[in-house]
Amino acid sequence: MVLDSHQHFWQYEPVRDAWISEDMGVLRRDFLPEDLKPVLDQNHIGGCVAVQADQSEAETHFLLTLAGQHAFIRGVVGWVDLRDDALEDRLAYFSSYKKLKGFRHIVQGEPKGFLLDPRFIRGVRMLARYNYTYDLLIYHHQLDEALQFVRHVPEVKIVVDHLAKPSIRTGEKTQWELNMAALSTFDHVSCKVSGMVTEADWRQWKPADFYPYLDELFESFGPSRLLYGSDWPVCLLAADYEQQLFIIQSYLAHASARENEQVLGENAVNFYNL
């Protein structure tokens, strides 16, 4: 089964969703399960993982409610304040929701040093007690800090979202490549093959633009630690669902059937315990 390990839902609110700027006008509307399900069906995708886009427990409950109503939403990556002194109580509370698989914080918007805050590290380590995962959302320039961070949380399954957002539009990848290779040496770290088109030139990208980055990921992480994700609806800024899916499908065309199964579904099942 093919699974989409990374997509979002929201009911658009201009104040809360201020990150959606004027040049992102296509995203300034609601995106809900009834919008995604036909797209997944058309592309023979058997299910998805809904990932938080707002940093609030209300967001977590919103996604869990949708997951309870729609079987194709196989898991939820929510948000909780990982620096909260009462975190263990919150995790115990959320543990009753079986479709909640992990948590994420939008670290890409945080100042330098955030990942190494002892309170944050303590919170992430606590996730292991409840078999929760952690999605690491960073830009490529935060990889040095991420390398230090993952050393502190060896007991937690971590997945790097969107290849750590390399500068695909400029083609620069030397430092990114070195850092990702170093990150891959930690067995508890995986990586999502997601969010690529929005790091490229939105209007002039071509599939081959992404192949050097995919080459590095397959060489370093291998097919057993890479997860396909669409980043729908954010991908719509640069590509429709079929276009972004074609990038990874075309890249995998010369891979084995086993490697296709792993990257396009099995790894997501195993990582998130779907």
Rank of each mutant, 00 (worst) to 15 (best):
V150Y: 07
P118I: 06
D81Q: 11
C48Y: 00
G113A: 09
Q204W: 01
D17E: 06
P223Y: 06
R169S: 14
H61A: 11
C191A: 14
L40C: 09
F246K: 15
E216F: 01
L252T: 10
E219T: 07
H105R: 11
L237Y: 02
H105E: 09
Q142M: 14
Y251W: 09
M196F: 08
L87E: 06
F186A: 10
F62M: 02
R203N: 13
Y228C: 07
M24L: 12
D231G: 02
A164S: 13
Q244G: 00
L226V: 05
F218Y: 10
R29A: 05
M126S: 15
I20L: 14
G47F: 13
L63R: 05
E57D: 11
Y251S: 07
Q175Y: 00
A128S: 15
F246D: 15
S56C: 07
R90P: 01
G75P: 01
L236P: 01
D117I: 04
L100I: 07
D89E: 14
E145K: 04
V51I: 12
D144G: 13
H44G: 02
D89S: 12
F114L: 02
F120A: 02
F149D: 05
L91S: 03
A86H: 12
G265D: 08
F186H: 15
G113R: 07
D231L: 04
S250L: 08
A50S: 10
G195N: 06
A164D: 01
Q108F: 05
Q243I: 00
M196V: 10
L143R: 08
Y97D: 07
P207A: 11
Q69N: 13
R28D: 00
R29D: 06
Q243E: 15
V150M: 05
I247W: 09
R119D: 14
M196L: 14
V77R: 10
D231H: 00
R169T: 04
V159Y: 04
E88K: 11
L63I: 06
F218P: 04
N270Q: 14
Y134K: 09
L115W: 05
S96F: 03
E110Q: 14
I248F: 07
E145I: 01
Q55V: 00
W176I: 03
R28E: 03
L227S: 04
W19Q: 08
D85A: 15
V51Q: 08
G75W: 01
M180K: 00
L147F: 03
W232Y: 12
L91G: 07
I168H: 02
W10S: 10
S230V: 01
P207L: 10
D54W: 11
W232V: 03
G229N: 03
I73M: 10
P233L: 06
H162A: 03
F271R: 08
R28S: 00
F218C: 04
L36D: 01
G229P: 05
I20D: 03
F31C: 05
R258Y: 12
L143Q: 13
I20W: 09
C191Q: 02
D209R: 01
A257P: 08
H61R: 13
G102T: 03
V234C: 08
H44M: 08
S5Q: 06
R129H: 11
A164Q: 04
G123L: 05
F271H: 12
A128P: 08
V51C: 11
R74C: 06
W202Y: 13
E259W: 07
K173I: 12
T133E: 01
A200P: 04
S194N: 08
L226N: 01
D144E: 15
P33T: 09
E155H: 12
